[in-house]
Amino acid sequence: MDLPSLLTVVVLAVFVGFEVVSKVTSTLHTPLMSGANAIHGIILIGAILVAGQATELLPLGLALFAVLLATVNLVGGFVVTDRMLHMFRGRNQPGTSDRKHDA
């Protein structure tokens, strides 16, 4: 990518990030952190691309380890965020109790 398009994408993403997050209520700051944490687990596709081009044993091993770490970040991040959000409910949404499997 050339520099001007790169900067365009970055600057717009920064603004979208600021705009979207400044509306998040402080009640949901933990899920926000956890959700953002899950999103950067997308480094997984970078790790997959590198592992898919590795030809020697050591780089391949390291790249596969990166794939493993990134998957832990991505999958763990979304699962734990879902679990947290499952617990947030208002007065009029009794929902199912989380106590059974989370006790």
Partner: peptide, 11 residues
């Protein structure tokens, strides 16, 4: 990667 990383960095 660029967009997702920047979003997380900004937030």
């Amino acid at each position: 990667l660029l967009v997702a990383g920047t979003l997380v960095g900004a937030s």
